[in-house]
Design a protein around this nucleic acid. Structure first.
Lengths: 346, 346
DNA sequence: TTTCGTCTTTGCAGCGCTGCAAACAGCATG
DNA sequence: CATGCTGTTTGCAGCGCTGCAAAGACGAAA
């Protein structure tokens, strides 16, 4: 097993200093065409490839950003991740992935640079177990971008959509279809559930605007936004004396879980119960029936998050926290309007 | 912005050599309880955290493994990834993720250590664009574990399930339900489609065992295993003069796509057409109706893959290629047997 | 007391690269 | 011919850590 070729060996072969080889390899500074050619030939001949570790140590950066999500198998995150990886790679950054399972201690550790320095230069983070206070206490020297809605200010950016407006639109859509007993699945009335609370706010605002009262007993809290929680909440709702005739689910997964229960009870969607989700994951579009939903511009969210974290890395000074809103749209499918062809509303 | 605390500073405070601090921090060698306590106190006091980059450079390893999949938003991979990340982290390794989109050049680059050395110590790889020959030509100094079935031998391991047997069982299940016109969606009759071909083999073997002829025109090739391909193939099948009464899909996504089309054409599953998938992703279990499927032991696949790649990293000598088979089971749900309670077959 | 063996601690070199500032052209200007 | 200028190349130190081998400490055995 041959040792790796180093800069110095290339330099010796090309008859120049190792620093010059470095300059050529990195496209730095001014190098004569003649020198460059000589060096490049030596590089080819020896099959030289730079050692990133050494480079990074010398530069005091790792060239990596961490992306931290609570659960990797959540389709919404997988879809987002794709965009993030692409955007980061385009800027020469590698992406390190971590999953926290919502563990607050683990999350706290990560936003304080993890166990060791220089493992990643910045972090894109979707917190689940941390409340505002914990987030505000993060290591300010670590460039941080938060995914999803948060209400606090701090030395970090938020990238997300306007949850209140989106939720209001989803709810208005249901009300405008003539539904009267609307349920909401996914509220989280505790400190770490801000995103959920914003959606509940939108749900209520829609009722206000339409002059209808909210049926408080139909607003169901769930610890997570997954299928199982959606299914459990739906079962509960159907067991009520007066079940809902429409459900606003705070994620498409919740909607899929709810629809699963509806189907197993022999109820028709949307005839008996209309269902709308949130996130526009691919599963929803292919579900039976296809799920109406709020569709955030994921590609833009991904590129914006990467852009911001790299910006923060580049500017050594600490930037003020920014609130970045990506656009979203209401996607109407069969789960609310039946076999009518899917149409779109901005 | 304070400079980071170094080993030497801790050493000075504790009144020992930096080498001793290193020994304590890493739990190396024999250190007196007294010394350890002194050092630990200094570590606490200064808030020392090791610099992984420096450590790795000195050790000539990166402490990272790369996991490379064609598409990140494929639920099967997301689910696998979770297990891989957990297992790797338990061994002190970080996971670098990359997505190739099936691009052969990109894939070829990765199995030859990427653009630079020391970025990752080993790689767990799910190839899509590379054929046997390209895989065999990989840099033998890079510990490599391939996910999924492959027929070749080489200086790398395979981790997967027994595709032929699993596919045979899925097909037998359909035949045993009394179905006579079985379709298969997902064949890939070209060099990079070996996994698909194994499934087709299982499909054919089942027919042989039951003494039934395969309807060749019902074996449909698709470039990928996603919903869109499943939907397209299903449309084609339904447009045939004699459509199938059962479909074996080479992935659950394909099955979901197919079921989507069946529903939109007003056909009932399983009454009109029985559908079985492959992979046992969560979407399948929550689909309407829930999809029967082949369920690979993903957790075991993940831990085995990590175990093997770390083993190869640890043993500097090149190990012979191994074929590692994880168990699988047939999971029977409504998409093949209707509302009968889901039961299990080994 | 000396010698040996074991356990603990240390010093030094160096992983492969880049930052920095100095050195060295080569050429035009005074 | 000295001076200054721009453009190119170089040498050296050092990023923060660990491998290695040697040194020191300490008690047991001779």
């Amino acid at each position: 097993m041959r040792r790796d070729v180093t800069l110095r060996e290339v330099a010796d072969l090309a008859g120049v200093s190792s620093r010059t080889v470095s300059n050529v390899v990195n496209g730095y500074a001014n190098v004569t065409e003649h020198t460059r050619a000589r060096v490049m030939q030596a590089v080819e001949q020896l099959g030289y490839r730079p050692n990133v570790l050494a480079r990074n140590l010398a530069q005091g950066r790792s060239g990596q950003i961490a992306v931290v999500v609570p659960y990797l198998d959540t389709p919404y995150f997988s879809e987002l991740l794709q965009g993030i990886i692409r955007a980061a790679r385009a800027q020469g950054y590698n992406v390190l992935i971590d999953q926290t399972d919502g563990d607050p201690d683990h999350e706290r550790m990560l936003i304080n640079h993890g166990r060791s320095r220089l493992l990643f230069d910045g972090i894109i983070f979707s917190p689940l177990g941390l409340d505002q206070q914990a987030l505000a206490d993060h290591d300010p020297s670590l460039p941080l971008v938060i995914l999803g809605e948060r209400v606090s200010q701090g030395t970090f950016d938020h990238v997300g959509i306007d949850d209140v407006t989106a939720s209001r639109q989803a709810t208005e859509h249901l009300l405008d279809l003539g539904r009267t007993r609307l349920a909401a699945i996914g509220d989280q009335p505790y400190p770490t559930g801000e995103a959920a609370q914003l959606r509940t706010r939108g749900f209520r605002e829609a009722h206000e605007r339409r002059g209808v009262a909210v049926h408080d007993e139909l607003v169901i809290a769930t610890p997570r936004f997954n299928r199982a929680d959606g299914a459990g909440a739906m079962r509960h709702l159907l067991d009520l004396p007066e079940p809902p005739d429409a459900v606003f689910c705070y994620s498409d997964l919740v909607a899929l879980g709810a629809m699963h229960v509806l189907a197993s009870r022999g109820l028709r969607v949307p005839e008996d119960v209309a269902v709308i989700g949130y996130d526009d994951i691919e599963d929803g579009a292919y579900a039976n029936p296809p799920v109406s939903t709020i569709s955030p511009d994921k590609e833009l969210i991904a590129t914006t998050a990467v852009e911001r974290v790299l910006l923060r890395i580049a500017s050594r000074t600490s930037l003020p926290g920014m609130e970045l809103r990506a656009p979203h749209r209401l996607v109407v499918r069969e789960s609310t309007v039946g076999r009518a062809a899917a149409s779109r509303t901005p």
